[in-house]
Design a protein around this nucleic acid. Sequence first.
DNA 1: AGGTTGTGGTTGAAGCGTCAAGTCAGGCGC
DNA 2: GCGCCTGACTTGACGCTTCAACCACAACCT
Lengths: 165, 165
Amino acid sequence: MHDGPDDTASGPRWLDAAEREAWHALVGVLLRLPSALDGQMQRDAGITHFEYVVMAALSESAHHTLRMSDLACLSTASLSRLSHVVKRLEERGWVRRAPCSHNGRYTEARLTDEGYAKVVASAPGHVETVRDLVIDALSPEQLTQLRDIGQTILNRIAAQDVFRK
Amino acid sequence: MHDGPDDTASGPRWLDAAEREAWHALVGVLLRLPSALDGQMQRDAGITHFEYVVMAALSESAHHTLRMSDLACLSTASLSRLSHVVKRLEERGWVRRAPCSHNGRYTEARLTDEGYAKVVASAPGHVETVRDLVIDALSPEQLTQLRDIGQTILNRIAAQDVFRK
DNA sequence: AGGTTGTGGTTGAAGCGTCAAGTCAGGCGC
DNA sequence: GCGCCTGACTTGACGCTTCAACCACAACCT
């Protein structure tokens, strides 16, 4: 499905059957898991999976507060995306923003009590979904395999990004 | 990062360290791999990864033609999404749509010669990226592990979807 | 102090995906 | 044959992400 046409122009090495099976499975997960996670969150809590990730990160940090940049890093988002999302969360009363007192160009995002309550209320359903779809479906050995594979891929992506600069 | 707060309200079983590591690695891949793939395609060919998938599926089918529904199934997309995408591809001259001659409510999408050329031109770069980021980074054993893990997760998602209906 | 550079963050427009209608053809009952 | 339903798309509106431009503050230079 994802390899090229039947052309054999000596240039690239096309994928063999085993490689294709693995790749195909990965692409399937890439396409379907995010919407499954998002769907559960939307139905049960009325928020995006990403909004949950942002608020969960805040809920686990000291004083429920983080600098925008750190929060962006933790949630693997661009600063721009985060800014939009935090703005929406602020409108819903779950987050407050304020310039850092020590350094005026930093902005600190703080989870309100309502926001924390929202996270606490949403967390069990999320964990349950994660268990249903992934964790409980795999053996302990597969979990370590998954971790190793995932980290390897992430390293490759990071390496490529660095190389491009 | 993705488990709940430190609350231990007996209800859900929170993730332990090993589970969290595996989950975290998977989420990282979920967030970063798609944009890496998309980025390569955008830079090198000026198309979306998903647009490539659609055209590649067409290029591998008989007469470079497929019914919209089948194409949607192959590319794991909703019919609606596919319709929008094919419309854009049509405007760029890479795909043509026509009602099926035998059954008027079917629509067949056919890759034009320009579209096929586009796929052929884009495929090597794509395969190379896939190799760089995933295939060549993993051992043969890891590839079969990845395939098994991915298929397990996909089965779970499918099972859940059926259950919800 | 004044100007420059650079980093942190925000904003607006444009593009893509999703969801909820809407259209249109073929079957089926009568 | 006529109404009605179902299945296969299509369309439009809305929300989110991205990208590029922008503003604000701080540090650095002279």
